[in-house]
Amino acid sequence: MDRDDATPPRRSARVLRFPQSKVAPPRAPGGRAELGITPLARQLGLADNQLNGHWCSRCEGLWYGHSLEAQCPRCGNRHG
């Protein structure tokens, strides 16, 4: 019996963990650190609802800034 090309391939029933914003990161034992708002976001006068949260793996915390910013305001890490 030939398989129909429109039939998707079978996938495993394995559940993959996905980090959620309301779950403490696994590597940060006390939760997460608040690293503050970037100088650019302050200079632009962005409101809280215009800020995006970014994760810094080096500081193990969240910093807030413009969506296109990539550098942690505390340590300068640019690799998440």
Rank of each mutant, 00 (worst) to 15 (best):
R3F: 12
D4V: 00
D5N: 06
T7Y: 12
P8L: 14
P9K: 15
P9N: 12
P9D: 15
P9F: 14
R10L: 06
R10H: 01
R11V: 04
R11L: 06
S12G: 15
A13S: 07
A13I: 10
V15G: 10
V15I: 11
V15W: 08
L16F: 08
R17V: 08
R17A: 12
F18R: 01
F18V: 04
F18I: 00
P19L: 03
Q20P: 09
S21N: 09
S21Q: 07
S21M: 05
K22W: 08
V23S: 13
A24Y: 15
A24D: 14
P26A: 12
R27I: 08
R27T: 01
A28Y: 11
A28G: 14
G31F: 03
R32E: 09
A33Q: 04
A33L: 05
L35G: 05
L35I: 03
G36W: 15
G36H: 13
G36F: 15
T38C: 08
P39I: 11
P39G: 12
P39K: 13
L40M: 10
L40S: 08
L40P: 08
A41W: 15
A41T: 13
R42H: 13
R42Q: 14
L44E: 11
L44S: 09
G45S: 06
G45H: 00
G45D: 07
L46F: 09
L46A: 11
A47E: 15
D48C: 03
N49R: 13
N49W: 09
N49L: 08
Q50G: 11
L51I: 12
L51H: 13
L51V: 14
L51Y: 15
N52Y: 12
N52D: 10
N52I: 01
G53A: 08
G53Q: 06
G53H: 02
G53K: 03
H54M: 00
W55N: 05
W55A: 02
W55K: 03
W55P: 04
C56F: 07
S57W: 07
S57L: 01
R58E: 10
R58W: 12
R58Y: 13
C59Y: 10
E60G: 06
E60W: 00
E60P: 05
E60Y: 00
E60C: 09
G61V: 07
G61C: 08
L62G: 00
L62H: 05
L62K: 01
W63P: 06
W63R: 05
Y64L: 08
H66C: 05
H66S: 03
S67Q: 14
S67M: 11
S67A: 15
S67N: 15
L68K: 00
E69Y: 08
E69S: 00
A70H: 06
A70F: 07
A70D: 00
A70I: 03
Q71N: 05
P73L: 12
C75V: 01
G76I: 04
G76D: 02
N77T: 02
N77P: 05
R78W: 01
R78I: 03
H79F: 15
G80W: 09
G80Y: 06
G80D: 04
G80N: 01
